[in-house]
Simulated scan of single mutants.
Amino acid sequence: MLNALEVFTTVVVGVMVGVEFSVAFVMNRIFNALPEDADQLARAHGGRMLGAVMPVWYITSVVLVAVWAIAGWHRPGAGLAVTAGALLMVSVIMSILLLVPINNQGKTWTPENRPADWKEQMNRWDRYHYVRVAVIIAAFAFLAAALV
Protein backbone atom coordinates (compact mmCIF):
# COMPACT_ATOMS: atom_id res chain seq x y z
CA MET A 1 0.00 0.00 0.00
CA LEU A 2 2.83 2.41 0.83
CA ASN A 3 4.41 1.76 -2.57
CA ALA A 4 1.17 2.77 -4.27
CA LEU A 5 1.02 5.97 -2.18
CA GLU A 6 4.62 6.80 -3.10
CA VAL A 7 4.02 6.32 -6.82
CA PHE A 8 0.68 8.16 -6.75
CA THR A 9 2.23 11.09 -4.86
CA THR A 10 5.15 11.29 -7.26
CA VAL A 11 2.79 11.32 -10.24
CA VAL A 12 0.55 14.01 -8.70
CA VAL A 13 3.55 16.23 -7.94
CA GLY A 14 5.14 15.46 -11.32
CA VAL A 15 2.06 16.48 -13.26
CA MET A 16 1.81 19.67 -11.18
CA VAL A 17 5.45 20.43 -12.02
CA GLY A 18 4.66 19.86 -15.70
CA VAL A 19 1.72 22.28 -15.62
CA GLU A 20 3.71 24.96 -13.82
CA PHE A 21 6.72 24.46 -16.11
CA SER A 22 4.41 24.80 -19.11
CA VAL A 23 2.94 28.03 -17.72
CA ALA A 24 6.42 29.48 -17.15
CA PHE A 25 8.15 28.43 -20.33
CA VAL A 26 5.39 27.84 -22.89
CA MET A 27 2.08 29.56 -22.16
CA ASN A 28 3.41 32.89 -20.88
CA ARG A 29 5.77 33.13 -23.86
CA ILE A 30 2.83 32.51 -26.18
CA PHE A 31 0.78 35.12 -24.31
CA ASN A 32 3.66 37.63 -24.47
CA ALA A 33 3.73 37.27 -28.27
CA LEU A 34 0.05 38.21 -28.58
CA PRO A 35 -1.12 41.77 -29.12
CA GLU A 36 -1.33 43.72 -25.85
CA ASP A 37 -5.06 43.29 -25.16
CA ALA A 38 -4.99 39.58 -26.03
CA ASP A 39 -1.91 39.05 -23.82
CA GLN A 40 -3.58 40.68 -20.85
CA LEU A 41 -6.91 38.92 -21.42
CA ALA A 42 -5.19 35.52 -21.74
CA ARG A 43 -3.26 36.08 -18.51
CA ALA A 44 -6.43 37.16 -16.71
CA HIS A 45 -8.28 34.07 -17.90
CA GLY A 46 -5.35 31.82 -16.97
CA GLY A 47 -5.20 33.49 -13.56
CA ARG A 48 -8.87 32.75 -12.94
CA MET A 49 -8.74 29.18 -14.21
CA LEU A 50 -5.47 28.04 -12.65
CA GLY A 51 -6.02 30.23 -9.60
CA ALA A 52 -9.01 28.04 -8.79
CA VAL A 53 -7.27 24.69 -9.36
CA MET A 54 -3.67 25.12 -8.26
CA PRO A 55 -4.24 25.85 -4.54
CA VAL A 56 -6.02 22.51 -4.18
CA TRP A 57 -3.28 20.77 -6.13
CA TYR A 58 -0.48 22.31 -4.07
CA ILE A 59 -2.13 21.53 -0.73
CA THR A 60 -3.00 17.99 -1.85
CA SER A 61 0.63 17.47 -2.85
CA VAL A 62 1.87 18.64 0.56
CA VAL A 63 -0.62 16.36 2.35
CA LEU A 64 0.28 13.35 0.21
CA VAL A 65 4.00 13.88 0.83
CA ALA A 66 3.37 14.29 4.58
CA VAL A 67 1.41 11.02 4.67
CA TRP A 68 4.20 9.32 2.71
CA ALA A 69 6.87 10.64 5.09
CA ILE A 70 4.91 9.59 8.20
CA ALA A 71 3.83 6.18 6.89
CA GLY A 72 7.27 5.40 5.54
CA TRP A 73 9.33 6.89 8.35
CA HIS A 74 10.99 3.51 8.93
CA ARG A 75 12.00 3.12 5.27
CA PRO A 76 14.98 4.43 3.35
CA GLY A 77 14.07 7.61 1.51
CA ALA A 78 11.91 9.06 4.27
CA GLY A 79 14.35 11.93 4.71
CA LEU A 80 14.13 12.68 1.00
CA ALA A 81 10.33 12.73 1.24
CA VAL A 82 10.54 15.12 4.22
CA THR A 83 12.85 17.38 2.21
CA ALA A 84 10.42 17.29 -0.73
CA GLY A 85 7.57 18.17 1.63
CA ALA A 86 9.55 21.09 3.05
CA LEU A 87 10.22 22.38 -0.46
CA LEU A 88 6.54 22.07 -1.35
CA MET A 89 5.70 24.05 1.79
CA VAL A 90 8.16 26.73 0.65
CA SER A 91 6.33 26.84 -2.69
CA VAL A 92 2.97 27.24 -0.93
CA ILE A 93 4.32 30.05 1.25
CA MET A 94 5.86 31.73 -1.81
CA SER A 95 2.53 31.43 -3.58
CA ILE A 96 0.55 32.97 -0.74
CA LEU A 97 2.98 35.81 -0.05
CA LEU A 98 4.24 36.66 -3.54
CA LEU A 99 2.24 35.23 -6.41
CA VAL A 100 -1.39 35.12 -5.23
CA PRO A 101 -1.61 38.86 -4.47
CA ILE A 102 -0.50 39.71 -8.01
CA ASN A 103 -2.72 37.00 -9.51
CA ASN A 104 -5.76 38.18 -7.57
CA GLN A 105 -5.39 41.63 -9.10
CA GLY A 106 -4.47 40.45 -12.59
CA LYS A 107 -7.37 38.07 -12.98
CA THR A 108 -9.84 40.96 -12.66
CA TRP A 109 -8.18 43.23 -15.22
CA THR A 110 -9.65 44.05 -18.58
CA PRO A 111 -8.21 46.33 -21.25
CA GLU A 112 -10.45 49.06 -19.82
CA ASN A 113 -9.48 48.81 -16.14
CA ARG A 114 -5.91 47.47 -16.07
CA PRO A 115 -3.28 49.66 -14.41
CA ALA A 116 -0.62 51.39 -16.47
CA ASP A 117 2.08 49.15 -14.97
CA TRP A 118 0.26 45.86 -15.63
CA LYS A 119 3.13 44.48 -17.73
CA GLU A 120 5.65 45.20 -14.97
CA GLN A 121 3.38 43.43 -12.48
CA MET A 122 3.07 40.42 -14.78
CA ASN A 123 6.86 40.37 -15.27
CA ARG A 124 7.28 40.36 -11.48
CA TRP A 125 4.80 37.47 -11.22
CA ASP A 126 6.79 35.62 -13.92
CA ARG A 127 10.07 36.07 -12.00
CA TYR A 128 8.53 34.75 -8.78
CA HIS A 129 6.98 31.90 -10.74
CA TYR A 130 10.37 30.87 -12.19
CA VAL A 131 11.70 30.54 -8.65
CA ARG A 132 8.64 28.58 -7.56
CA VAL A 133 9.04 26.24 -10.53
CA ALA A 134 12.66 25.61 -9.54
CA VAL A 135 11.55 24.82 -5.99
CA ILE A 136 8.86 22.34 -7.06
CA ILE A 137 11.21 20.70 -9.59
CA ALA A 138 13.64 20.15 -6.72
CA ALA A 139 10.80 18.69 -4.62
CA PHE A 140 9.88 16.36 -7.46
CA ALA A 141 13.51 15.27 -7.82
CA PHE A 142 13.67 14.44 -4.11
CA LEU A 143 10.47 12.38 -4.43
CA ALA A 144 11.84 10.51 -7.41
CA ALA A 145 15.07 9.82 -5.51
CA ALA A 146 13.06 8.62 -2.50
CA LEU A 147 11.42 5.98 -4.70
CA VAL A 148 14.72 4.24 -5.46
Score class of each variant (00 low, 15 high):
V12F: 11
W109G: 15
E120S: 10
S91T: 13
R29P: 02
V67W: 02
K107Y: 06
R75H: 10
L97E: 00
N28P: 03
I70W: 04
G77F: 02
H129G: 05
I59C: 07
E6S: 11
A66W: 06
V62K: 01
L147P: 11
G106F: 01
L34F: 14
I136Q: 07
G72K: 06
A141S: 00
F21A: 08
V26A: 02
E112H: 09
H45P: 01
P111M: 07
L98E: 05
F21K: 02
T9A: 07
M49N: 09
I30Q: 02
F140H: 00
M89A: 10
A144V: 05
Q40A: 07
Y58W: 12
L98N: 10
V13I: 08
N28D: 06
T60M: 04
A86R: 15
A84M: 05
A66H: 11
V13L: 13
T9G: 00
T110R: 13
L147K: 05
M49Y: 08
V12T: 10
D39C: 09
V82P: 11
S22Y: 09
Y130L: 04
R75W: 05
T110K: 14
N32T: 06
M1G: 12
F140N: 01
R124H: 15
A145Y: 00
G72T: 07
K107D: 03
L97Q: 08
F25R: 04
E36T: 13
P111E: 03
L88P: 11
A141N: 00
A116V: 00
W109Y: 09
F31A: 09
L147H: 08
P35V: 00
I137S: 08
P55V: 01
A33M: 10
T83S: 13
V13H: 02
A52P: 15
A66F: 10
A139S: 12
F25Q: 06
W68V: 07
P55A: 06
